[in-house]
Amino acid sequence: MELEARLNATQPGSVRPGGRTAKVRAAVLEATGEALADNGFHALNLDRIAAAAGVGKTTVYRRWGSAVGLVTDLLRDMAEQSLPASDTGSLEGDLRANARLVLDTLTDPRMGPLFRAVIAAAACDEECADALRGFYATRLSEWAPVAERGLARGELPAGTDPLEVVRAVSAPLYYRFAVSREPLTPDTAERAASAALAAAEAGAYVV
């Protein structure tokens, strides 16, 4: 997508490395994730990240430049490493799998606090917000084929927007996670998937 392409082209840490450079990137991003999960975005310090990763400060400053640069590259890496979309043979099965994946991510002891820190950073920093939009754009694009297959099987009305179907699954889960701070449970995920499926079948996402 255009936003993701712009991020890849312009943001610090955007060149995909190989060899030793890949190991440096992996170590720095691992340290960044741990620091975000433990202390949040505003405590992110490049000197401490370099020390935790076992790399030189100059390398971190030259390549990532700022805490925002670290978060941007971390989100890109998370999108790249995320599990691929399911193919259970039915739209219902695929949407339930998507809901469970989101649930497992947000309730994970490490990933949950990390996402909370990134969302908080995006609320007050436009570059972080751009990076977060890029992450979700990538994940939505990777899961859109489950709705496209549903369309091909006749499970959805013609003209249904696949992205909107997938977005409808995760939206209530993220609302509970980031806004209302209500508990997330397997039942919550099942309801989100069922509601998205019912709305899609009724034509709510036809464009």
Rank of each mutant, 00 (worst) to 15 (best):
Q81R: 06
D125I: 06
M78I: 15
D130P: 01
V118Y: 05
Q81V: 02
A99Y: 02
L132N: 02
L95R: 01
P113V: 13
D108I: 01
V68C: 10
L91S: 06
A99C: 09
A123T: 12
R133Q: 10
G65Y: 09
E80H: 07
R76P: 08
D94C: 00
G93L: 03
L132T: 05
S66D: 10
A67S: 15
L103E: 00
T107W: 04
E127V: 14
D87E: 14
M78P: 07
C128R: 03
L91R: 08
E126N: 08
F115M: 13
L103H: 03
L75V: 07
A99Q: 04
A120Y: 01
R96I: 09
D87W: 01
V68W: 05
G65V: 12
T107G: 08
V118C: 08
R96F: 10
V118S: 04
P109N: 13
D73N: 12
A79K: 08
A120M: 04
Q81S: 06
C124T: 15
D108W: 02
L103Y: 04
A67I: 08
G93W: 03
A123F: 07
D130A: 15
D104G: 07
R116M: 03
D130W: 13
L114W: 02
C128V: 15
P113D: 14
P109M: 12
A67C: 10
D108M: 05
S82Y: 00
S90M: 04
G69H: 04
D87I: 00
A129N: 13
D94A: 02
T88Y: 04
E126C: 06
R63S: 14
E80W: 10
V102C: 06
Q81P: 02
V68I: 13
A129Q: 14
L75R: 05
A117C: 07
D73V: 12
C124W: 13
N98S: 04
F115E: 05
D77M: 08
M111V: 09
L114C: 07
L70N: 10
D73E: 15
L101M: 14
S66C: 04
F115V: 05
P113C: 15
W64K: 13
C124L: 15
C124S: 15
R133T: 05
L101E: 05
A123W: 08
V102I: 13
L91P: 03
A123I: 10
R96T: 11
L74Q: 10
I119D: 10
S82M: 00
R110F: 06
L101D: 07
L83Y: 03
P84I: 01
F115H: 09
V118K: 03
D87R: 00
L106D: 01
A85Q: 03
C124P: 06
P84V: 00
A85C: 04
D94I: 00
L103K: 01
R133H: 11
A67Q: 10
A121Q: 12
S82K: 00
D73Q: 15
A121F: 09
D94S: 02
D104M: 11
D77I: 03
